Simulated scan of single mutants.
Amino acid sequence: MKKMIFALLIMLIMYIGYADFTQGTIIHELDSETIEITSIEAEAKPGDTLITMMKRHDILPVTFNIDTLSQEFTMLNGGLPPHKIVAGEQYLLPIAN
Rank of each mutant, 00 (worst) to 15 (best):
T22N: 11
Y18G: 08
I26H: 12
T38R: 13
Y91M: 04
K2I: 02
L80R: 03
T22M: 12
K2W: 12
I66L: 12
I95L: 02
H28V: 15
T52D: 01
M14I: 03
F21L: 03
I16V: 14
M1H: 06
D67Q: 14
I16P: 00
I85Q: 01
N97E: 15
T22W: 13
V86G: 01
A44L: 04
D67E: 14
S39E: 08
K84G: 02
K84S: 13
E41Y: 06
M75S: 09
S39C: 07
I37C: 07
D20K: 08
M54D: 03
Y15K: 07
E72Y: 10
Q71E: 14
M4Q: 13
Q90G: 03
I59G: 02
L80M: 08
F73R: 08
I95M: 03
I40P: 11
M1D: 06
G17T: 00
E72S: 10
I10D: 06
T63G: 00
M14E: 04
I51W: 06
I27Q: 15
G24D: 14
T22V: 14
F64V: 10
K84P: 05
G78A: 01
E29A: 15
H83T: 00
G78F: 03
V86Q: 12
A87V: 10
F6D: 10
V86H: 05
G88K: 11
L93T: 00
P81R: 11
F6R: 08
L92Y: 05
H57R: 10
N97A: 12
G78P: 07
I59Y: 04
T25Y: 13
P94K: 00
P82S: 08
I95P: 05
E29H: 15
Y91A: 01
F6K: 07
G78I: 07
K55S: 06
A44M: 05
A87W: 11
T25V: 03
Y18H: 11
M75K: 11
T38M: 09
A96V: 07
I10G: 01
E41T: 14
L50N: 03
L8G: 09
P81C: 11
L69W: 14
N97M: 13
P94A: 01
H28R: 13
P82E: 07
F6P: 15
Y91V: 11
A96W: 04
G17N: 04
M53K: 02
M1F: 10
L9C: 12
D31C: 06
Q90D: 09
F64S: 03
T34P: 06
L60E: 04
G24R: 15
I51T: 09
I35W: 05
M53L: 04
T38S: 14
Q23W: 15
P61C: 09
